[in-house]
């Protein structure tokens, strides 16, 4: 993951920036703000509908890092990861929200099978770009916010499953389930009716 960020800004690696901040280097701190405040803000917007709250939280995360710089741990593989976790904690405490653990763990028992036979996919092949865009927009709009959060961390922010699990405070399996749930609308009916399309899919891919 770390290398991903380095390709974006080759001058200083995350570890260099982190060490700089710990030693009170304001330039390193400024670069870190410049590099991450925007995506951090984007993530914050998935956690709170109020842009003022998000702005304040982003500020506070950076202020805290600087304020507590002497007590920061030396090995941080990714500043971004550290910042995201701090932001989430801050916004959720501010909202007196309950951790999402319960919400996610409900899905824990769900056995995810390798194939998609008992689920409907939201993605359809061979569509034009504009229809695809419409589909994704519709999907994001109707998903619960926790699922949008997981998708954001996965697709936009490039965190891996383990990192997302730590940011959201749940286990890896829950995150996988969460994303699976977001991308497929599961059928509650056990005696599912196999639609012609599904039969086609099974035949096609088996």
């Amino acid at each position: 993951m770390v290398t991903t960020f380095e390709t974006l800004n080759r001058e200083k690696s995350d570890q260099e920036l982190w060490d700089g901040i710990r030693n009170g280097d304001e330039r390193a701190f400024t670069i870190a703000f410049d590099r991450y405040h925007s995506t951090l803000y984007n993530y914050g917007c998935k956690l709170s509908p109020s842009s003022a709250t998000v702005e304040d939280a982003v500020q506070d995360v950076f202020i805290d890092i600087w304020r507590l710089r002497k007590n920061l741990t030396s090995d941080v593989s990714s500043i971004k990861f550290y910042l995201y976790r701090a932001l989430r904690r801050r916004i959720n405490i501010g909202h007196e929200r309950f951790p999402v653990t319960e919400e996610i763990s409900m899905l824990d028992d769900l056995e995810i099978t390798g194939n998609d036979t008992n689920s409907e996919t939201v993605f359809i092949e061979g569509e034009s770009k504009s229809i695809m865009e419409k589909r994704i927009r519709g999907l994001i709009a109707r998903l619960p916010e926790r699922q949008v959060e997981a998708l954001t961390l996965r697709y936009f922010d490039d965190f891996n499953i383990e990192e997302i699990a730590q940011i959201m405070g749940v286990n890896d399996k829950s995150v996988r389930n969460f994303i699976y749930k977001a991308l497929t609308s599961l059928r509650h009916n056990r005696e599912y009716i196999i639609s012609p399309a599904l039969i086609f899919c099974i035949l096609w891919f088996s």
Binding site: C45, E127, M132, I136, R137, I140, F156
Partner: peptide, 19 residues
């Protein structure tokens, strides 16, 4: 190709809230 399109769209769509 389709999957690539969807992944890029997902990234684009979840990353729209820029300050």
């Amino acid at each position: 190709e389709d999957a690539r399109g969807y992944v890029n769209l997902l990234a684009e769509d979840t990353g729209k809230s820029k300050p």
